[in-house]
Design a protein around this nucleic acid. Structure first.
Lengths: 257, 257
DNA sequence: TCAAGCAACTGGCTTAAGCCAGTTATGCTC
DNA sequence: GAGCATAACTGGCTTAAGCCAGTTGCTTGA
């Protein structure tokens, strides 16, 4: 069976989607361009409106287009990625007084904003407890939940977990942690970050995450479960980053040992 | 507006989806369990079959369920992830004679298989050319395309790019590159890997990638654009990994410099 | 010239009905 | 007990029709 035979034997919705996809890939529909409406596509391909609609939905699911209620369907524009290098933990960045997020936002000429959504004492989930080497049957962690924006666009959600017994009564319990953020406080408590462990995965967002991050269909999230180790190679902080995958790239440069 | 008000004001397909999602999260529908059929859900919720079908589609898009033609819709089972540590490039792994992929497959009691789909001389794309520091207007690279399986299940697609002038006439042009794979040959050519750079992102798969990896809807891919640097800190190999995100986790452990 | 209202466009969502194709279970026959 | 055929189940996909809600553009009046 030739390719065009395979094409013609596909359901109409997939054929319409493929034709549109090809137009996008060939540049006939450039980034930001508006697609023909559902009704126009239905007429053009001799299909029902719902069939054309299904074709557009397939493209949205593949991350190629975004539908906007009452306005149209647009080819998604590639976003300039927020790039987080493995040097984002480096002490030399500390000298700028800026966190990695603020540094990257500045590099892109954008205004960083961090909303502290909550600071609560909690029983840790098993995966956090395991990494912080604490019990998971008592309220042994402080959970700081932050929401990061660049020019008012949500980019990432970060949950940071610290040991309660260290954090209680310190600025770690406050929205504003003071100079150099939480790492400054943790260093004063004797934890100098010497090594880090990042566990990286990708998945589709939960509805709540999609809502918080303003994600359209077809955009996954990049999750980083980060553990900071101190001079004794003991874990002292765990953070879970949930990044919009259409806005975030990670970069690791490391020696081969 | 209370949460239940927000719930009741949602379209029926989303309410049905949320109810099913809650049942999954509460364990009432455990991993591997079969959901009620479209027709049964339609009757149960007093909706049209297509409305129930849309609800199931939403769950599939969120990566929670998988529909199987003629059989039913099943709660997706969490897969044991293929975990690739940053030490996968380490020389000490070389002593085992096994590549990182084979090591991980062995750890999980699975049979690794690598299909070499092609070895071709090509003009590199700009992003590859830039990283290998070669021209992108001539056929200056060898492109090795491999497909990796664990117990006959596709896990990743890897495209490796090497300089043509180094690879021509060597085992690098053969499916079987000899002891220690391509890195053994490259070392013989004077390239000892000392540093690596991994650029990590996530996105939805192209239809072709979805086909090759056997991906159901709602599963993104994790892409790693890997560059190997030698003892002179010169790039000598670039590989693009496309991993099934439901089967792959990456781990980076590194010092803070 | 500006603002407001309305028509026409757009996508969002549902319904009823139907047919196709894959899978499973049951019953019957050998 | 095994195998085959068929019915009933399942999901896949389409159609026609309709209504709702958001947006845009045009017209009219002040």
């Amino acid at each position: 069976m030739t390719r065009s035979e395979a094409f013609s034997q596909q359901p109409a919705s997939r054929r319409i989607a493929q034709a549109l996809r090809t137009a996008i890939e060939r540049g006939e529909l450039s980034a930001g361009a508006k697609l023909p409406s559902e009704r126009a596509l239905a007429e053009e391909y001799g299909a029902a409106r719902n069939t054309a609609r299904e074709a557009i939905r397939l493209l949205a699911e593949q991350g190629l287009v975004t539908a906007k209620h009452g306005r149209g369907v647009f080819v998604r524009e590639p976003q300039r990625l927020f790039r987080f290098g493995s040097d984002r933990y480096s002490l030399k960045n500390r000298e700028t007084g800026l966190t990695p997020f603020r540094l990257e936002a500045k590099r892109q000429g954008k205004t960083a904003r961090i909303d502290v959504l909550g600071i609560t004492r909690e029983v840790p989930s098993p995966d956090i407890a395991e990494r912080l080497k604490i019990r998971d049957d008592q309220e042994t962690v402080v959970h700081r939940k932050n929401h990061y924006f660049a020019d008012d666009e949500p980019v990432q959600i970060v949950s940071t977990y610290l040991r309660w017994d260290e954090a209680q009564g310190t600025l770690l319990m406050q929205p504003k942690a003071g100079p150099h953020g939480i790492y400054g406080r943790l260093e004063e408590l004797g934890h100098v970050m010497t090594r880090v462990r990042d566990e990286i995965s990708a998945r589709m967002p939960t509805p709540e995450e999609a809502r918080l991050l303003g994600l359209p269909p077809g955009v996954p999230v990049l999750e980083v479960l980060h553990t900071s180790l101190d001079q004794d190679l003991e874990p002292f902080e765990v953070s879970r980053y949930v990044h919009r995958a259409d806005r975030t790239g990670l970069l690791y440069e490391l020696p081969v040992e």
